[in-house]
Design a protein around this nucleic acid. Structure first.
Length: 270
DNA sequence: CGTATTTGACCCGCGC
DNA sequence: GCGCGGGTCAAATACG
């Protein structure tokens, strides 16, 4: 109520110019490196977050605009948030039952010693009619909340694979209902279900599919991609990037960490 | 019958 | 210190 004008997301997507968006259709990372390797490649510090260090609700638009306007300067972002995804994995096993004895329903897994884990977050803005894009993984919805300045609700998903702590948030842009924002948090530590892989076979035409090598199946249309986390970045793909995807050198393990290091970070301008 | 989704309640961090 | 907003849990329900 204090920020009636804040926008959860840039409604002015048109602000992105072709050349600024082009970085996605130009070069890609190999997707076989680690945070450190990539960080080094980009000359980034493990925990160096400058311009976008503190990304938050109302600052999202700023970061995005900054990237769009700064282009190469956006490289200040870092994907350092390699913090473990925490032990929330055990939630299914109901680990937090003991201790505290709050007995209240909201036992939560947050322990007192638990510090804020800056999990790497990657957000994709995809122009699609379907809110739940098929990414090759199996997700289970565990919650839904209304977004403050948006008539559209936000859905919370979690990877159903045991031991996989990856979470996903899906919401629509309140300005452009046709745009779906999918935010991934964490990294998959397992393969993509074979069944789903077959489903998306041969479709590798999405940035995420290349970087994750999972075969992202996006219905079609524009896709914007921005990352938030220890640092933050944003990408945008106004057009289907013709990926020079060569399946032979793509690792089978799809880790978000691989895809979160966009080529534009280290190669945008001469 | 088993699994996924829905939905209200609860908890936590942060801003005022 | 209080209130708000965001995020998560878990029981109930829907669906195959």
């Amino acid at each position: 109520m204090s920020d009636p004008q804040e926008f959860p997301f840039p409604n002015d997507i048109s602000s992105f110019d072709d050349h600024q968006l082009g970085f996605f259709g130009g070069s890609y990372i190999h997707g076989s490196m680690d945070y450190d390797s990539l960080s080094n490649a980009f000359g980034l510090s493990p925990s160096n977050s400058e311009v976008f260090s503190s990304i938050d609700s109302d600052q999202k638009q700023h970061q995005i605009k900054a990237v769009a306007a700064g282009g190469a300067n956006a490289s200040s972002v870092s994907s350092s948030s390699t913090e473990e995804v925490s032990e929330r994995v055990d939630l299914k096993g109901k680990e937090m039952k003991d201790d505290d004895s709050s007995s209240k329903k909201g036992g939560k897994g947050k322990k007192k010693g638990e510090k804020k884990k800056k999990e790497a977050r990657v957000a994709f803005m995809t122009k699609s009619e379907v809110d739940h894009l098929e990414d090759g993984y199996r997700w289970r919805k565990y919650g839904q909340k209304a977004v403050k300045n948006s008539p559209y609700p936000r859905s919370y998903y979690r990877c159903t694979t045991q031991k996989c702590t990856v979470k996903k948030r899906v919401e629509r842009s309140f300005e452009d209902p046709s745009i779906v924002i999918t935010t991934y948090e964490g990294q998959h530590n397992h393969h993509v279900p074979a069944t789903l892989r077959g489903h998306a076979s041969g479709i590798l035409s999405h940035p995420l599919s290349l970087m994750t090598s999972q075969g992202f199946h996006i219905p079609n249309h524009q896709e914007l991609f921005l990352q938030m986390g220890g640092g933050s970045m944003a990408y945008a793909t106004p057009q289907p990037p013709a990926l020079p995807v060569s399946d032979h050198h793509l690792p089978d393990y799809g880790l978000l960490q691989d895809m979160m290091l966009p080529s534009f970070l280290y190669k945008q301008n001469p």
